[in-house]
């Protein structure tokens, strides 16, 4: 069985924390400043808290909801002092992230037994799909899985060449066709080869596309149908790659990609910058999509499993 996510090992946990901490932003600085020591809760404190959440791209809707709940508890005297408030805020954010159920599709006995396990990687342009695939392949290889890559981004200039470099780096086979060919045909070739060679997992790279382009979304649906014809239940995972700098549009991206191809999880990339990627909290809240991995750099092992507590803690601690 391929565990695509789970409790991160200690070193990885440290790394995520470090990578986010090294670029500690206003958010944590502000919250820290607000909440160090124990002071009584007043409206000014709550207003500053609101500012901190909004600055992390968590969005107006989620921020309002979380704050309303905190306010209520303050009024009801259930929360006294800033320390308790901080703890409760963290708990609420973790609860939103943890409430996202892991979709059944990827973990049904059939999917686990499926050979090969088929993973689609999708997203809008420039979020880091190809880089994520390189890292994911490396990770699966390190776990002792045999992996094959499928270069179904036949549109963007040099996308195939880019994936080729990653395939070489992690020593996995790449199935490709010429640039401009039908991506569904590449999926067909890839899965046929993967079945013949009995590999454990196939990762399919897809062209970046804006979720508003109906023809491109239909193309993705076709690729999905092709996969399902060759391998039962495929694709078993559909990972939506999202850039941590993404603002409120992330919600529309998640909604549309889920509607068209059934996203099973999110990979949050570029978390080594100063952006927090708070929109994933809003996505979890609205769509119940789990975040599976975070990307923290350009190196091959800069991909770590997502852990809600670690993530929220690294925002505030």
């Amino acid at each position: 069985m391929i565990t695509l996510f789970g409790k991160p090992e200690e070193t990885v946990l440290e790394r995520l924390k470090n990578s986010v901490a090294k670029t500690r932003t206003e958010l944590s600085a502000r919250v820290e400043q607000l909440l160090t020591g124990d002071r009584p809760v007043d409206p000014a404190l709550l207003a500053q808290l609101e500012a901190a959440l909004l600055s992390a791209d968590i969005g107006v809707g989620t921020t309002k909801e979380v704050l309303a709940s905190l306010r209520r508890q303050v009024t009801e005297q259930k929360l006294v002092g800033s320390a308790a408030l901080k703890l409760e805020l963290k708990n609420q954010l973790v609860a939103i992230l943890a409430a996202a159920p892991v979709p059944r599709n990827g973990d049904s006995p059939a999917a686990v037994a499926a050979a090969p396990r088929v993973i689609f990687v999708v997203g809008v342009n420039g979020t880091g799909k190809t880089t994520t695939i390189g890292k994911l392949a490396n990770r699966l290889r390190a776990e002792g899985r045999s992996v094959m890559l499928c270069a179904a981004d036949t549109f963007r200039a040099a996308a195939i060449e880019q994936l080729e470099v990653w395939a070489k780096r992690s020593g996995v086979e790449l199935i490709k066709q010429k640039a401009g060919s039908d991506p569904a045909a590449v999926v067909f070739d890839g899965l046929t080869a993967a079945r013949a060679k009995n590999v454990d997992a196939v990762i399919v790279d897809t062209a970046g596309r804006l979720h508003t382009k109906s023809n491109l979304m239909a193309e993705l649906e076709k690729m999905k149908r092709t996969a399902a014809k060759l391998v039962p239940g495929a694709p078993h995972d559909v990972l939506l790659v999202m850039d941590a700098t993404t603002g409120q549009n992330g919600l529309a991206q998640a909604r549309e990609f889920t509607g068209h191809v059934g996203v099973t999880g999110i990979v949050l990339t570029k978390l080594d910058g100063t952006a927090k990627g708070g929109i994933v909290i809003a996505i979890s809240r609205e769509l119940g999509l789990p975040i599976r991995f975070v990307g923290t750099g350009e190196q091959m092992d800069d991909l770590v499993p997502f852990d809600a507590k670690t993530y929220v803690n690294s925002l505030f601690d």
């Binding site: 850039d243 700098t245 603002g247 992330g250 952006a275 927090k276």
Partner: peptide, 11 residues
């Protein structure tokens, strides 16, 4: 990127 959020000011 037109989709960038709050971090735009920093970068």
């Amino acid at each position: 990127d037109a989709m960038i959020g709050q971090d735009a000011v920093r970068s």
